[in-house]
Amino acid sequence: MAIKKPKVAVFKFASCDGCQLSILDAEDELLIIANAVDIAFFPEASRRMLKGPYDISFVEGSITTPHDVEYIREVRKMSRVLVTIGACATAGGIQALRNWKDIKEFTQIVYAKPEYISALDRSLPISSYVHVDFELQGCPINKYQFIEVMSAFLHRRRPNVSSHSVCIECKTKGNICVLVDKGIPCLGPVTHAGCGALCPSYQRGCYGCYGPMESPNTQSLSKHFIRLGLTGQDVMLAFRGFNAYAEAFRKESDAHEK
């Protein structure tokens, strides 16, 4: 008897497409994955769109419009497991920089034709609206971590995704610390692992695109940045990036806002 393949779906909200593209970037694994599961809904890759329910849904992007709010609730109802992928879905993304502005006022003052636009005041992560079974951080996600998460849920086990900091990845790679040795501001000590300590390996400081690690001491790092000569505004901007609205980074950037 043929075993029914698990149905997998990929949904998109406000985002750049980069995380779901990472799935297609798994060139060596893609055809194997496609044989193991039924890719039932993945509009970026196929015009075949099967109705739910789905065994596992991956959600990219943040919630930014009234329509999104309704739609994510529908997606949740259709999905046995819901996994968010990327900084937009897990923290609101770079577009969450609007959360510090008054978009309503903007829209009225600013647009040529504001009546055409429908947008919420805030760009929020998926977990602000529905229950999320697992959040995979990163801007963009690491495609191998994605495969691990999918495989784990299909086998009903916990994903093996480390929650320690980028620092540990630098140590295991044998990198010389750019912060200590060169005095380059680096968010590595407070940032979630997953990229393989990419920026320090290329002689630049981490800019936090994987979001906060499990227990980040952002205050201590900020103090060190100030000792290096950064201004309060510099520190504010450093934390207010691709994961600006993630709680730990949000609080730290707010603390340095004049």
């Binding site: 930014t64 770079i94 920089l97 609007r98 502005k101």
Partner: peptide, 9 residues
């Protein structure tokens, strides 16, 4: 596709 306001921020 929802607007993301890059030029603004």
């Amino acid at each position: 596709e929802p607007p993301r306001f890059f030029e603004a921020f």
